[in-house]
Amino acid sequence: MVATGAVAGVGAALVAWPFISQMNPDAAVLALATIEVDLASVPEGQEITLKWRGNPLFVRHRTKKEIEAAKSVPIADLKDPDARNANLKSGDQATDVNRVVGGKEQFLVMMGVCTHLGCVPDANSSLKEFAVLEGSIKTGGWFCPCHGSQYDTAGRIRKGPAPENLAVPPYKYLSDTKIVVG
């Protein structure tokens, strides 16, 4: 009796799996993997938004001022001390240089997906909203219009409900001005 029940139970579980698994991303979705970005087309102080895996990808050409502002923040002040950089190992500190590629600090490449509930943070928000932040972040960064999360000029979470820094996707430099994401 018990054995028969167990066999039937295992069978039911095995049958259930395909019906659960079919909801996972299908082969065509998984295949949408990489895009190339020409960094020379992004003027200093501006950013472009591309679509990668259905989500917005920010590529920002940071000004010296923005880089300085991000570098001046002590790690202890960060809400999320992890770099969240897919090109590094998890647990690496969220220093400014760990958010970009050393020597190419002016180019910040990251997902434009708020780590709270997935809205697109806005880089061009009116400065009024940023003024509530103290210190360096006044000079730029991102503001999420949905629930008010605020990110600094390195895309690190500084204020609001979002738990993590904006994710840096896997990417590498193909040439001096060209990267491939994914």
Partner: peptide, 11 residues
């Protein structure tokens, strides 16, 4: 799993 992708999309 809910999205069937990396964002809300056709699936």
């Amino acid at each position: 799993w809910l999205w069937g992708g990396y964002s809300v999309d056709n699936p």
